[in-house]
């Protein structure tokens, strides 16, 4: 099993496509109503993986995603994409190629599609802007291909978003993102607005497209069970900080940070027996508030397992991890 030490991506081919270090995003900076949405976020995303970002509303996970795709300027820190600092991307031409390489799928499938354009115009628009097709005939052909790749009928091309169900609209949103052949896609709560049976369809589609087109995903969501299913590695955020980063399976077997524990204990599972026995733990955000910030940060407890803590706490977390892994081994033996 993965958590027994076999790394997910072989060490040699592990290449970071995105590196975020000490990202800060303050709104109304310096004013009385300053909001520190993202205080200190560092993580990297490897090529070909799905990185899940979870946390409650207001934890700064969407803000991190928006900063990454350069919707607005960041307050501090550094984001590099394919080795280039995205802050340096300023010229229109460079921005265009940056956005061609990185795309986003949004939460609300209705609100993120222009209601007055047909599906063909919505998807074709992306192709036109990036000059990916020569003429309208070619564009139409490409739109048909894209629609079929996301499981929609090509006859839908001349319809408007209002004629579709939520799941179908989300597929159009996915087709639009795929149109420009990106390498990296940010899914910001892309399935939260959908019904259970449709969620599974869209998640499976995303997985399938990832394998086919060699994509890397940043999957932002608050639904931990879905995130666990789709992600290779997961980052847990709370009040503007990343508190824990590790591989998906390990996060569920050995959640080290008390916040992760409380988050996991709060997920209702479709199993009445388990629910009756369930003990829920509460979390006080004061726990990760340190008065003295020296020696506090993301520390590596085990390979690929990071915890936001004080340097003195590392040994404690190491012990906790060993204990939890031992228990898990007994349970799965």
């Amino acid at each position: 099993m993965r958590w027994e030490g076999k790394p997910l991506v072989a060490e040699a081919e592990k290449k970071a496509i995105v590196e975020i270090s000490e990202l800060k995003q303050y709104f109304n900076a310096g004013k009385k109503n300053e909001v520190r949405a993202v205080k200190d976020v560092s993580f990297s995303i490897y090529e070909g993986e799905t990185f899940g970002l979870v946390g409650e509303s207001g934890s700064g996970k969407s803000t991190t995603g928006r900063a990454l795709i350069k919707l607005g300027d960041i307050t501090g820190g550094q984001i590099s994409y394919k080795g280039q600092d995205i802050n340096d991307i300023k010229r229109r031409k460079d921005l265009l190629s940056f956005r061609k390489s990185m795309q986003m799928i949004f939460q609300d499938p209705y609100a993120s599609l222009n209601p007055r354009l047909t599906v063909k115009e919505i998807i074709g628009g992306a192709l036109k802007v990036h000059g990916m097709t020569e003429n309208s005939k070619e564009r139409t052909k490409r739109v048909y291909e894209l629609l079929e790749s996301v499981g929609l009928n090509r006859q839908f091309a001349n319809r408007y978003p209002s004629e579709f169900s939520g799941g179908q609209c989300q597929r159009v949103g996915i087709a639009r993102a795929l149109a420009v052949e990106p390498d990296f896609i940010i899914c910001d709560e892309a399935i939260s607005a959908l019904d259970v049976s449709i969620q599974a369809q869209v998640v499976n589609l995303l997985k399938e497209l990832k394998d086919k087109n060699n994509l890397t995903y940043l999957f932002i969501a608050h639904d931990l069970s879905m995130v666990k299913y789709i992600s290779d590695r997961i980052g847990v955020m709370n009040s503007g900080r990343v508190l824990e980063v590790c591989e998906a399976d390990e996060l569920y077997i050995a959640p080290l940070h008390p916040y992760t524990e409380s988050l996991l204990s709060a997920i209702p599972t479709p199993d009445p027996e388990a629910e009756r026995r369930r003990v829920r733990t509460e979390y006080d955000p004061k726990y990760h508030h340190y008065d003295d910030h020296s020696n506090v940060g993301l520390h590596e407890i085990a390979p690929e397992h990071f915890i936001y803590c004080h340097k003195d706490e590392i040994a404690l977390y190491k012990k906790k991890r060993e204990k939890l892994l031992r228990q898990a081994k007994q349970q799965y033996a």
């Binding site: 099993m1 958590w3 259970v196 049976s197 969620q199 599974a200 369809q201 998640v203 499976n204 931990l224 069970s225 879905m226 666990k228 299913y229 399976d249 569920y252 077997i253 996991l264 997920i267 599972t269 479709p270 799965y332």
Partner: peptide, 14 residues
Amino acid sequence: SMPTLDVGQTDLYT
């Protein structure tokens, strides 16, 4: 079609 929290789940029914 609901993912479980169990380790090693690979396929989701739709």
